[in-house]
Design a binder for these strands. Structure first.
Length: 201
DNA sequence: CTTCAGATGCTCT
DNA sequence: GAGCATCTGAAGA
């Protein structure tokens, strides 16, 4: 598996969002790698996108991370109890990012470790509902990988949180409107959500 | 399968 | 003080 370098993120955000589908997200946690294949993403393009926290280059304490170099992790708290993982894209100072909305464990060992993080039970003890909806949301993904704001600003070219390419290519990529951004006026219709059908592990 | 309420705390005005 | 790039469990169809 080849780790993606900064040049991967230093590109058009919508293109990066598409290209991230099928890639392997690795989070090293307690000296142990957890790996999931990315199945769903959304693009947020600050300069023109009212759904983006840094719309029109809005700079606040929270959005500061979005102005970091491409290949930086942007992680924030939402609804008081969940976290969302993003990857900063495009040139430094251009506040854009890709939200990682879903994934699926790469191996059985990954599923075991993630199910403990999420449900405090082993994979075989999960309900069928839990299994079917294992990592199909940004908050679930962060909980499963034990990611929170302490990892905000992490460098994706480092060794604790990164994305790798193992050659897997999704068959059919679907496109749609982004989720949960009803406040974003004309941007609610931008087709910047990407996902593909994947087998339930 | 579907809807629905409630949780919970940070961020920005 | 209002709102939020969400999730869960319970209840109904």
């Amino acid at each position: 598996m080849e780790k993606l370098g900064r040049e991967f993120y230093d590109r058009d955000t919508v293109q990066v969002a598409r290209d991230l589908l099928g890639k392997v997200l690795v989070r090293v946690w307690e000296d142990h790698p957890l790996a999931v294949r990315i199945t769903e993403t959304e693009a947020y393009v600050g300069p023109i996108d009212k759904a983006c926290h840094a719309y029109n280059y809005k700079r606040t304490a929270r959005t500061e991370t979005l102005f970091a170099p491409p290949g930086t992790a942007y992680i924030y708290l939402i609804y008081g109890m969940y976290h969302c993982l993003n990857f900063v894209t495009e040139a430094e100072g251009t506040p854009c990012a890709v939200l990682i909305r879903g994934g699926t464990p790469l191996t059985w060992e990954d599923e075991e470790a993630i199910s403990i993080n999420r449900f405090h039970c082993t994979a075989s003890e999960m309900s069928s509902y839990q299994r079917k909806h294992f990592l199909d949301g940004p908050g679930k993904l962060c909980k499963g990988l034990s990611l929170d704001r302490s990892m905000n600003g992490a460098d994706l070219t480092g060794h604790t949180l990164f994305v790798a390419d193992d050659g897997f290519v999704p068959e059919t990529i679907h496109t749609g409107k982004r989720i949960g951004i009803d406040y974003a006026e004309e941007a609610v219709d931008f087709p910047w959500r990407f996902f593909y059908d994947h087998a339930i592990v």
